[in-house]
Design a binder for these strands. Structure first.
Length: 563
RNA sequence: UGGGGCGUCGCCAAGUGGUAAGGCAGUGGAUUUUGAUUCCACCAUGCGGAGGUUCGAAUCCUCCCGCCCCAGCCA
């Protein structure tokens, strides 16, 4: 459970319109306990948009001392799978929320739903329609024209009951008939034009197997499931606003045990990101990414593998708020939250992404000494570690320039810089290969500057990270960039907007031993570079790390350099 | 041209008749053994537009404009 702020917020005034409503309901003594639910359909993995809904539903329940159920909306066996049921639970838990014993499935209620449907038939409020799918569509009318009544709309209760029971018994093929609510084919709200309550589906359900041949539609199942569970505030996204009259219609006509109410908020959209299940499913199925947990995916599983801490996701959805206007949040906001959390918690380590060999000419051959480095500059409780220093080192290729511009204050011929926790060094010569590429630096160090400070008080303009050549380990580093190249990629033609540079693999990186021995799935900061986390592909023989996110880099921004 | 929503700074978002919170981004500056972090400062005479009511309007009224959702036996 995410706990700390919960108590305080109970007495706090609502932070959004949903909480305002709940607070008012509580003040009016409308309910003695607030009950919400998070109702995913198990037909895909959860993504960061769901995190907003999860945090809202579970958060509200927590803040008002109520409860939040996890309920799978498993009414369409054609699309749903056990794998998704499992991943969804893992992801909600990872985010830090707990449904306790309150795990339910819409399929738990199939029997009751069926009985209530017969009740509606008896009351003359539902009928079996023999029209084909095409006929139903044609007779539904359009946005501006009313629909036409089905020729089967006025069947007798007996005939309807008989047909509906035979649908249930599996006597008819898929699509042969449906059960419809008898409301109003001329309603300006298309959802009220005799919506389908049950369709025939000869399909194996992940939980009920082959016992059912008919399945309830979302509109018929959802509200009633809410009522059965005693949900007080059924929170969903804006596109269901038009369904609310239908939601209320069923609740009013059926002998349900409680009267839940539906409230709608705007779903999350993020720049450089697509959050539609259709697109995410295709990205996976068509191999654009390695799987649902590819670190470039906006899925919870992807964020986790990427090294994003759950607290950062929670903070992000807290900051963006909950409202009703469609919006596209700058992905920079998410990145800020990730850096904020990781800066606070991540252990500091050194790694060289693109190594450039350095030989300290005046350092004794064969000598090795150990230097002390802090694990977190702002948190002494995280301790220190030792790093070996010797004659041959690696520094970052980007930290050396033979002909530097004025604003470059790293290493260049003749300049002096500090090697973090070690010594000041000066570059004497850059050695190049036949093609003119710098392959090695010949440097000298100042023994007086051990630890990084000069007794004479002289300053350097840069501190570089580095690694001893012998006492560091090779590793593969995977650098991720936005999956989509455009701020607002087109869902309809997403493949065209995929960023061809979304993954860069650095196979020759070096890392300090403490990184390899870390027994943690939490991200570490590789100083001056970014946050990295061990990937599940990593083995003792082949160490693999994912870059969660780079450090803020105002220098690169200024010179328009790399990211 | 039907119905349902929404329009406040580049991006989120408070505000519900008393004279525009906050965050992200951005821009200056200070500190810094991470060009990181931290700190300080700046950043809407204006709330989609036009009228109107009022001593006073982002908030109320009228008209207009723009954007999103709905015609699945998906959710």
């Amino acid at each position: 459970m995410v706990s700390e702020p919960a108590v305080a917020e109970t007495v706090d005034t609502g932070r959004d319109f949903i909480r305002d409503i709940i607070q008012a309901d509580l003040a009016a003594k409308k309910y003695q306990e607030i009950v919400t639910r998070f109702p995913p359909e198990p037909n895909g993995y959860l993504h960061i948009g769901h995190a907003k809904s999860i945090a809202l539903n579970f958060g509200v329940a927590q803040e008002f001392s109520g409860r939040c159920n996890l309920r799978f909306d498993d009414t369409n066996p054609i699309k749903e799978e056990q794998e998704y049921i499992d991943s969804i639970q893992a992801d909600v838990r990872w985010l830090g929320f707990d449904w306790g014993k309150n795990l339910f499935y819409a399929s738990d209620y199939f029997d009751r739903l069926y009985e209530w449907a017969e009740g509606l038939i008896r009351a003359g409020l539902a009928y079996v329609d023999d029209q084909s799918q095409e006929e139903i569509r044609a007779n539904r009318g359009t946005l501006t024209e009313p629909g036409k009544n089905s020729p089967f709309r006025d069947r007798s209760v007996e005939e309807n009951l008989d047909l509906f029971r035979r649908m249930k018994a599996g006597e008819f093929p898929n699509g042969a008939r449906v059960l419809r609510a008898k409301i109003d084919m001329a309603s300006p709200n298309i959802n009220l034009r005799d919506p389908v309550m049950y369709r025939i589906l000869h399909a194996t359900h992940p939980r009920t197997g082959d016992t059912w041949k008919i399945y309830p539609s979302y509109d018929y199942a959802h509200g009633q499931s809410d009522a059965i569970e005693g949900i007080t505030h059924s929170i969903c996204t804006l596109e269901f606003e038009d369904h609310r009259p239908l939601y209320d219609w069923f609740i009013e006509k059926l002998p349900v045990p409680s009267q839940p109410h539906q409230y709608e908020f705007a779903r999350l959209n993020l720049t450089y990101t697509l959050l539609s299940k259709r697109v995410l499913t295709q990205l996976v199925r068509e191999g654009h990414v390695s799987g649902w947990d590819d670190p470039r995916m906006p899925t919870i599983a992807g964020l986790k593998r990427r090294g994003v801490p759950p607290a950062a996701v929670r903070e992000f959805v807290r900051r963006i708020g909950v409202a009703k206007s469609n919006s596209v949040v700058d992905v920079g906001m998410l990145e800020f939250c990730i850096r904020e959390e990781l800066n606070r918690t991540a252990l500091r380590r050194m790694a060289v992404l693109r190594p450039l060999k350095v030989v300290i000419e005046n350092y004794p051959e064969g000598q090795v000494e150990e230097l002390e480095a802090v694990n977190h500059p702002d948190d002494p409780s995280k301790g220190t570690r030792r790093i070996a220093f010797g004659r041959e080192l690696y520094i970052e290729r980007d930290d050396f320039m033979e002909n530097p511009p004025k604003k470059f204050f790293r290493l260049s011929p003749g300049s002096e810089v500090r090697l973090r926790y070690a010594y000041f060094i000066k570059c004497r010569e850059a050695i190049k290969d036949a093609s003119g590429e710098v392959v090695e630096l010949r440097c000298t160090y100042d023994p007086e500057t051990r630890g990084g400070n000069a007794p004479d008080g002289r300053k350097v303009k840069a501190t570089l990270h580095w690694l001893p050549a012998a006492q560091s380990l090779p590793a593969e580093l995977r650098i991720y960039n936005q999956l989509f190249a455009k701020p607002n990629p087109e869902a309809a033609n997403f493949a065209a907007d995929i960023n061809p540079q979304s993954l860069e693999i650095l196979r020759d990186a070096r890392i300090e031993p403490a990184i390899a021995t870390a027994n943690s799935d939490e991200a570490m900061q590789f100083e001056r570079q970014g946050y990295f986390v061990r990937d599940k592909d990593s083995t003792p023989e082949r160490l693999v790390f994912n870059r969660t996110i780079g450090l803020r880099d105002t220098f690169a921004k200024e010179v328009g350099g790399k990211g």
